[in-house]
């Protein structure tokens, strides 16, 4: 398990930096917008809930892109590099790498254009190109309003019920997971079984993807932590996919 999957409870860190801004540099807004557009134009949206007529949107973007794809890029990084990069720096690296690997742009094009902007302050301050088919932006706003719900019909009854004790499995993790590593092997109580089932849109090596039940679990602090730094009058809750759990 990589450090970025296993952050919970790490010791020896600094006091919190209470930076309340969403973006700390103007450029970060642009990569946020590009990622959100990619989610809104993803080729899986014709099977989404709600369904979109995505193949009729006049964009050249024909790829599958969800949060999971963005997360997978960050989680696949070398852990020491992950913690050297600020939040949106990871996005910029992952997303620009995706457009190169999928053939939308070449690395040379990107590097040449970047170098031109760095060399000329006039070019760096010039407005972006205009134009493009407005139907693309209509789809982007439609996606923002209607979303892409992961809820799906339940294929088989949920294995666990409210009040059950469950243990988080020791799952072998590859480059992407939705299970915080520090929960592995620990026991929790089921406090809610969510209605229906939840997809993750694509299969991961550790077993999520196909629609399955999700449970709200309550973990006692003494179950998760050794005494140091533990708060005895606290509870920790996580909503966990069924495949990560076994009866305790």
């Amino acid at each position: 398990m990589k450090l970025q999957h296993n952050l919970g409870g790490l010791e020896g860190l600094d006091p919190i930096t209470p930076e309340i801004e969403v973006f700390v540099e103007p450029w970060e807004k642009r990569i946020f917008g590009i990622h959100t557009a990619m989610m809104a134009l993803s080729n899986h949206l014709d099977t989404a809930n709600p369904q979109y007529m995505i193949d009729q949107v006049p964009t050249t973007f024909k790829s599958f892109w969800t949060w999971g794809h963005l997360r997978m890029g960050a989680e696949a990084m070398h852990p020491f590099e992950y913690f050297q990069l600020r939040y949106y720096e990871k996005w910029l690296g992952g997303i620009s790498g995706f457009f190169v690997s999928e053939g939308y742009i070449t690395q040379e094009e990107l590097d040449t254009r970047t170098a031109e902007l760095l060399e000329s302050s006039e070019k760096a301050e010039a407005p972006l190109p205009m134009g493009g088919n407005p139907a693309i932006d209509t789809q982007v706003v439609k996606y923002l309003r209607e979303g892409d719900s992961p809820m799906r019909p339940l294929a088989a009854p949920a294995k666990f019920s409210v009040g059950d004790q469950v243990r988080v499995k020791n799952t072998l993790v590859a480059d992407h997971t939705r299970l915080p590593g520090n929960l592995q092997g620990h026991v929790a109580e089921v406090v809610k079984v969510y209605d229906n089932a939840f997809t993750y849109f694509f299969p991961t090596a550790d077993g999520i993807g196909t629609p399955m039940p999700v449970y709200s679990l309550a973990f006692k602090p003494e179950e998760l932590w050794a005494e140091s730094l533990m708060d005895p009058n606290s509870l920790y809750y996580n909503d966990i996919f069924e495949v990560y759990l076994e009866a305790a």
Partner: peptide, 23 residues
């Protein structure tokens, strides 16, 4: 980073992935 993201956005607009107004 500012130059790289501007390079990326301008290329994506030119190639019809997004429009000049999307972001």
């Amino acid at each position: 980073s500012a130059a790289k993201v501007k390079a990326l956005e301008s290329l994506l607009i030119e190639k019809g992935v997004i429009t000049g107004k999307t972001v």
